[in-house]
Design a protein around this nucleic acid. Structure first.
Lengths: 190, 190
DNA sequence: ATAGTAAATGGAGCAATCCTCCACTTATTC
DNA sequence: GAATAAGTGGAGGATTGCTCCATTTACTAT
């Protein structure tokens, strides 16, 4: 029984390990919000009341930890987008989704710069959010409002750039919709 | 004589210090290109044959060093833009300038993410390049080919996005003009 | 129950880097 | 050729990243 869980190919965690994993994630979220994405991993281990070795065993590097803490929020964001799908035009839907991603990427300082890596990490939330982005993009392209040669990574770069600008100057947060509009007009099939 | 140099309010550097400053800048440029914007500052000091204390005295943090190494190139870029001004339409001029900024921002890995900070650092090159961007933008807006609600920071955001895309996938470099075109179409006063 | 074993743990310890501090050196001025 | 202000270098403390492995713990089969 190498693959007891059909959605992953990893053996299930032992009960104590699963508990610790959750504790690490909760601590990481809290510390990242307090101190930014470059916070000390030892601080996180300490707050989770776990040895540093345990943290590294479960999350081999900072990226993995960032991705894992993002996971729940990314999935929630995808669910919300799917739920609202029927009530929105393709244009509204993709704008709303991009704005939601920006909100996610500015949840704490330093996350924006890692967004690209997080969305390539292969976690469930990463897959889900890329998938939803692709779906909305395809829908917009089918509707003829976005060019065919735009892909999901173009969108990720756009979200990253808008988020970095907010990090450097929080006043830019007021211009998120404006900028999303600029970019989407830019990639529009005029 | 507190302000012997009318363009800055700092006392002029002693001859040896000015020499070392140049050596540090040259070393920084080389090391950043080799190892990216997060290279070790001690490596830079070593290559400049200067103590680490000297580097910190002149450039109190990494941002300052990044901004200073960008300065010459930014000024060259502004000069080139001004020189070519008479021969270009407002549209051509702004496209060329944005493309030049992208080239600058992709000069080494990690610079794109700092572009916003560099262009807010207050160095001469930073002022000059923002000023030139504003001039070209105003010219394009007066000519009715760019929306009135676009500002220089929107442009910087756009340059950042395109540059990040190139960093993640160097093949995207071939599509710079294409992407600049897309986004400038987007901010056009259609 | 309990013995066997594979998984999990924690933290000591080494390496890399940041950045400060200050005793010493050097350029400049009068 | 003093006087002095500016500049220098690098030792060293602090922080952090990450590895390694002796020890502990949860699960399983009997």
């Amino acid at each position: 029984m190498a693959t007891p869980n059909p959605t992953t190919d990893e053996a299930p965690l032992r009960a104590d390990a699963a508990r610790n994993r959750e504790r690490i994630l909760a601590a990481a979220e809290a510390v990242f919000i307090e101190r930014g994405a470059d916070a000390s991993l030892e601080d996180i281990a300490k707050r989770a009341k776990v040895g540093i070795g345990t943290l590294y065993r479960r999350f081999p590097n900072r990226e993995a930890l960032l991705a894992a803490t993002s996971d729940d929020r990314l999935i929630a964001l995808v669910d919300a987008s799917r739920a609202a799908d029927a009530t929105r035009t393709p244009d509204e839907a993709i704008r709303a989704y991009v704005a939601a991603l920006v909100t996610h990427a500015t949840h704490y300082r330093g996350l924006a710069a890692s967004l690209g890596a997080v969305l390539h990490s292969g976690t469930p939330g990463c897959h889900a959010s890329r998938g939803e982005g692709q779906r909305l993009l395809a829908r917009a392209q089918d509707a003829g409002i976005v060019r065919k040669d735009v892909d999901i990574d173009d969108i990720v770069c756009m979200v990253t750039a808008i988020s970095l600008a907010i990090e450097q100057d929080p006043a830019a947060a007021a211009r998120v919709d404006h900028r999303v509009g600029l970019f989407l007009d830019g990639i529009g099939a005029g």
